[in-house]
Design a protein around this nucleic acid. Structure first.
Lengths: 149, 149
DNA sequence: CCTATTTCGACTAGAAAAGTCAAGATGGCT
DNA sequence: AGCCATCTTGACTTTTCTAGTCGAAATAGG
């Protein structure tokens, strides 16, 4: 029941990009340093995330990465699914590509595993990176400036 | 985020023993056949479960395994933890043996992973094997005879 | 004593995870 | 145009875990 380190790295990389509000893209080396990710491995991961449409890159000097969409439109669950595959304790209760097990419709555990999967989804699919950033600003600063009118 | 097949086998083995209500112990071969578990692998698993105090064994002819305590006193979560280790998406939020990560108290994800772990625990630690058996009797038979007065 | 059965530890093949590396393509800057 | 920092790609390695397998010993009942 645990997330691969690759997946956690991916999540942290996205988080770093989400916190990086200035317009120029963020360099791989900066992300790696901030989030303590092996730089060569991070290259691989960012390449994958680009393929999934989560980040964009700019080459050349002054190049780097930035988010492809606003942080409040990316959930943690999306990234977990994209990097680690379906979120399901056993294959037969996967939402996206359920796999029939040997017990077909007569499995005594189908309902149970379904409830486990739902419990996880309820957390990870309802949390966006914007939510996390806000949560941490509150925790650190004690308050968050609210710009809404 | 998935359970090892060893762990799922262990859960199914316990379930088979819980359903086996006659007094004599149940043979490994019978459990293996009923739950579709490779018999040699099941030997390994039952040995481990015995070490954890979940099952008892009797050797020799007419030997076999039986539960060490009633089915309503064994939760799925216990078995999962015993076989697969702590139930936690990342090591730092494990209840039993949390492992400090490189970010110490300043981790932006600590709260989030904690909520994920809690969501899972809320399901697996509150479901006993007796609950599962009852659920399946209701599903199959349409009703369950209630022997309580 | 004999036999069925459990028990135990060692062993292994294969896959996946985690990370490394080198060489080439690209784009901004001077 | 030329330089250089940076991204891009794909192959490669190393380590760890998974999912078993196997053989021999111990044991209990008949």
């Amino acid at each position: 029941m645990s997330v691969s380190s690759k997946c956690y790295y991916a999540i942290r990389a996205i988080y770093a990009l989400a916190e990086h509000t200035t317009p120029e893209p963020m360099k791989i080396a900066d992300i790696a340093q901030k989030e303590l990710i092996p730089i060569r491995f991070l290259e691989v991961i960012l390449g994958q995330l680009k393929g999934g449409g989560f980040v964009q890159s700019r080459r050349g000097a002054e190049g780097g990465y930035r988010l492809a969409k606003p942080a409040d439109q990316i959930t943690i669950g999306e990234i977990m699914r994209y990097v680690d595959g379906p979120i399901a304790p056993v294959d037969c209760v996967s939402q996206s590509r359920p796999k029939e097990c040997a017990f077909h419709g007569e499995c005594s555990f189908f309902g149970f595993w379904g409830r486990v999967r739902q419990a996880i989804s309820d957390v990870v699919d309802k949390t966006t990176f914007a939510d996390l950033i806000k949560e941490n600003q509150e925790r650190k600063g004690g308050y968050v400036r609210d710009w809404t009118i």
